[in-house]
Design a binder for these strands. Structure first.
Lengths: 122, 122
DNA sequence: AAACGTGGTTTCCAATAGATACTAAGGAGA
DNA sequence: TCTCCTTAGTATCTATTGGAAACCACGTTT
């Protein structure tokens, strides 16, 4: 089965999408939204170390790509809720697997790094 | 089920791993290696637009993390072959899904971007 | 002897990432 | 009333990175 698009091609629009998706923060944000709508500062508090600017940019891109919706409730203070779109939902399984692969295989990676560094330090 | 590691934590070593894995070039390289060992310049030619420096860096990191092996054959000119390790192989399904999601959903993403940009241009 | 193919490293500049500080608008506490 | 808290961001500045291009050694072909 062939598609009109090919990530191996330069200038293919899929490259832009891959660039956004293959991003540490985007992966964590999508993973966090898997269980339902979440507010801006809730995401910010739970994804430790993310800055406001980066979170804002990441969400804006995901919204533009149709993966996330942004809903503003005129409460006081204003409430802004982010949620996955159906399109975004088709991605969560993959993204979640990527985000948590590291948790499952961290020991193996650390061991490999130690071996590599020891060999390199000859 | 709980692990000692948590990608949501700052300073957790999994963050470093996620940072390497959630990278456009790393994803493409891992996807390319799925079918068996490939030589440096073969990867370079097939992943259009990747520079030698970036490919070299990406492979070095993947090797350090124990995902890829580097084998030098003393031919003339020298042949260097890269291949997935068993650990790397546990990742290919996920990475491949991510790399090709864009190909399958590109039209939906482009449509979402057009809508978003049209609304923003008010 | 000049050019080519191998698998890189080095150099340089522009673009980006991230830390920090700031904004507005309302509510709560002193 | 004055100050501080919250919300969801934006603005500014700097350090790091990404990527293009040039360079390298080695041996072979032309």
């Amino acid at each position: 089965m062939r598609y009109r698009y090919d990530v191996y091609e330069d200038r293919c629009p899929t490259r832009m999408v891959l660039d956004r998706l293959a991003d540490k923060w985007a992966v964590l944000v999508l993973d966090r939204l898997e269980d339902g709508p979440v507010r801006f500062n809730a995401i910010r508090r739970e994804i430790k170390g993310i800055s406001q600017k980066v979170l804002s940019q990441t969400l804006k891109r995901l919204e533009r790509d149709g993966l996330v919706t942004r809903t503003v409730y005129p409460t006081v203070p204003v409430t802004v809720e982010y949620a996955l779109t159906p399109l975004g939902r088709t991605l969560t399984e993959t993204v979640s697997a990527l985000a948590h692969w590291a948790e499952h295989n961290m020991d193996a990676v650390l061991a490999a790094q130690a071996t590599y560094d020891a060999a390199g330090a000859r």
